[in-house]
Design a protein around this nucleic acid. Structure first.
Length: 257
DNA sequence: ATGGTCGCGCAGCGA
């Protein structure tokens, strides 16, 4: 099974590129983030015509996550299901696809260290960990895919010195990510591709993509029943090139049957 | 890097 994730930075703006990508990459499950669409504007029929069932959790101008699947799409749940206030943002969607519980996640950016949004980011990640503890089992197939807005290690940024004291690399953020791994998730791409300086995001500004100055912040975190079966892993840099690209590239992993 | 571009939506914010 091929599982992919892509922060598309507006599905309306990116639909032609997404259709093109589905055509040549042929994922079985595709998680999308930053669709920036209301549910009523989500192009379900376009994906249906390409052979994909789809679920979307959106709010309109910002955020928005989706899961496309051609191996079944069941038990769809949007957001957290706990006793706390519902998340103000559309950042989390669950579905079961081909026997794998899948989450499409768009972790808050954090904006600045010390900002209210930075606290929201850390709280959001802690809440995700609690959700895993209460709803999921690390012994069963699970893949949490999306834009985590965290570079797990200094190997995942082009110049750690530039990012010192910045969001995406701070110890509290990395510890929050490590807490997910402590529960039982494995960075499936990294396990298969250990070499440093492989990125999934490059700022549109200043020709950062062409200078190879990026960050690896889009992750596929999977439990061992999935992660142990990965046979291939790729960041598709081609998708970051050409006309009207997202500022993120898709990430995919293949698992053995 | 903190200039430099996008997307949204029509000013300026968020990333």
């Amino acid at each position: 099974m091929r599982i992919a994730t892509w922060n598309v930075n507006s599905l309306k703006a990116r639909l032609p590129r997404v259709e093109e990508w589905l055509g040549y990459a042929q994922p079985d499950v595709m998680c999308l983030q930053e669709t920036k669409l209301a549910d009523t504007a989500f192009p379900s029929l376009t994906f249906q015509a390409l052979g994909y069932d789809a679920a979307h959790h959106g709010e309109g101008r910002w955020n928005g996550v989706a899961i496309l699947s051609r191996v079944g799409l069941d038990d769809v749940v949007a957001g957290f299901t706990d006793a706390h206030e519902p998340d103000t943002d559309a950042r989390l969607l669950w579905a079961t696809c081909g026997g794998v519980r899948v989450a499409s996640v768009y972790v808050p950016n954090g904006r600045e260290v010390g900002h209210d949004h930075y606290r929201y980011k850390l709280d959001w990640l802690a809440r995700l960990r609690v959700h895993l503890e209460s709803h999921c089992d690390p012994a069963r197939p699970l893949a949490v895919c999306g834009d985590f807005n965290i570079a797990p290690t200094d190997d995942d940024v082009w110049d750690p010195a530039v990012f010192a004291q910045s969001t995406h690399v701070t110890p509290p953020e990395r510890e929050a990510l490590a807490a997910l791994e402590d529960w039982g998730l494995v960075d499936a791409f990294r396990r298969h591709r250990p070499e440093p300086h492989l990125y999934t995001y490059w700022d549109y500004r200043a020709g950062m993509f062409h200078k190879h100055k990026g960050m690896r912040i889009d992750l596929i975190l999977a439990t061992p029943p999935v992660a142990d079966q990965v046979s291939f892993a790729l960041i598709d840099r081609q998708a970051r090139k050409g006309s009207q690209p997202s500022d993120h590239a898709p990430v995919l992993v293949d698992t053995r049957p």
